[in-house]
C-alpha cells in the first residue's frame, strides 16, 4: 500500500515538477511570479486533446504540437505583458500576469463553449504492470519516462549549451550579464520558451492521467506547482524537481491518510511550514543582506 502510494505520489509529483520548472526558471531570471504559466499548461492540455480527438494523431505527436503552440504563446505573453514592465515596481508585472491569466481562461472558455470539463480520449492501451508490491499503469510509466527524459534534456541544455550558460549567467546577475554582451532579451524569451514546452508536455500528460481537462485547470495546479518551486528553493532547477516530487508524494500520502477534504490545503501548509524553517526553500541559497 505504502509503495503504491509512493509511486502514485511520484507520478503526480513529476507533473508538478514539470510545471514548477517554468516558474523557477522565469523567477530565477527576472524575479517574476509568472501567474499565467498555469494557463500555458492548460492550453497545452487542450491542444493535446484536440490533436488526439479531432486529428487522431499519435499521442507523442500531440504532445509535440502542444509544445509547438505553447512556446510561441509564452514568448508572446512575455513580449506583450511583461517586457514593458521590467523596470517598474514589483507588483505591476504581477498584476499584468494575472490579467493575462484571466484573459486566457476566458478565451478558452469562450472557444470551448463553457467551463465544464471535457474527457480526454483514452489513446493509450491501459495495461497494468506489476512489480513486486506496486502496480504501474501504462500512463504512469509514460509520465515518469517522458518527464524524466525532459528533465535530463533540460539539465543538459543548461549545463552544456551556450544558451544554457547565458541563462545561468543572467540568473546570477541580470545587469552584469547584459554588460558582458549577453543578449538578455533573448535569454528571457528562451527561458519562457523552455518553461512553456515543459508545461505543455505536463498538460498533455496530466490530461491523459486524470482523464479530464477544463479551462480553469491551470489555476490550482499552477499555484501548487509554484508552491513546489518555492518549496524546493525558487530559482533552483534541482529545487523545482525536488519540490514537485516532494509535494506530489506528500499530497498523495495525505489523502491516503484520510485528509481527503484538506487536499487543496496540503501544498500550502507544507510550504508555510518549510519557509518558517528554511526561509528560502529546501535548496535555495540563504539571503545575506548587503549594506
Amino acid at each position: 500500500m505504502f509503495w503504491q502510494q509512493l509511486v502514485n505520489g511520484l507520478t503526480l509529483g513529476t507533473t508538478y515538477a514539470l510545471i514548477a520548472l517554468g516558474y523557477t526558471m522565469v523567477y530565477g531570471i527576472i524575479q517574476l511570479i509568472n501567474f499565467a504559466h498555469g494557463e500555458v499548461y492548460m492550453i497545452g492540455a487542450f491542444v493535446g486533446l484536440i490533436m488526439v480527438a479531432v486529428y487522431k494523431v499519435n499521442f507523442f505527436v500531440a504532445m509535440l504540437v502542444a509544445m509547438g503552440v505553447c512556446v510561441p504563446l509564452a514568448v508572446l505573453i512575455e513580449r506583450v505583458a511583461y517586457r514593458p514592465l521590467r523596470k517598474s515596481t514589483r507588483l505591476a508585472p504581477l498584476i499584468s500576469a494575472l490579467g493575462v491569466s484571466i484573459f486566457l481562461q476566458t478565451l478558452v472558455t469562450l472557444i470551448k463553449g463553457g467551463p465544464n470539463p471535457l474527457a480526454f480520449p483514452q489513446v493509450i492501451q491501459d495495461t497494468v504492470y506489476v512489480l513486486g508490491p506496486v502496480k504501474f499503469s501504462t500512463v504512469q510509466c509514460i509520465i515518469l519516462i517522458v518527464a524524466s527524459l525532459l528533465m535530463i534534456f533540460l539539465q543538459f541544455t543548461i549545463k552544456y549549451t551556450k544558451m544554457g550558460k547565458a541563462m545561468r549567467a543572467t540568473s546570477e546577475d541580470y545587469e552584469t550579464a547584459g554588460l558582458m554582451g549577453i543578449n538578455v532579451n533573448n535569454v528571457v524569451s528562451f527561458t519562457f520558451a523552455v518553461g512553456a514546452a515543459l508545461a505543455a508536455a505536463g498538460g498533455v500528460l496530466v490530461g491523459m492521467y486524470f482523464n479530464s481537462i477544463h479551462p480553469f485547470m491551470g489555476v490550482s495546479v499552477g499555484l501548487k506547482s509554484f508552491c513546489a518551486a518555492v518549496l524546493g528553493g525558487i530559482g533552483s532547477i534541482p529545487g523545482a524537481m525536488l519540490g514537485g516530487i516532494f509535494l506530489g508524494i506528500v499530497e498523495v500520502m495525505g489523502v491516503a491518510a484520510g485528509f481527503d477534504s484538506y487536499k487543496e490545503a496540503i501544498a500550502f501548509g507544507l510550504l508555510i511550514l518549510v519557509l518558517l524553517f528554511k526561509p528560502t526553500g529546501l535548496l535555495g541559497r540563504p539571503i545575506q543582506r548587503k549594506v
Binding site: V80, L98, G99, I102, F103, T106, L110
Partner: peptide, 11 residues
Amino acid sequence: YRMLIYGALMV
C-alpha cells in the same frame, strides 16, 4: 466577453 476585456484591461 466581459472577463476577456477585464483581463486585457488589467494588462
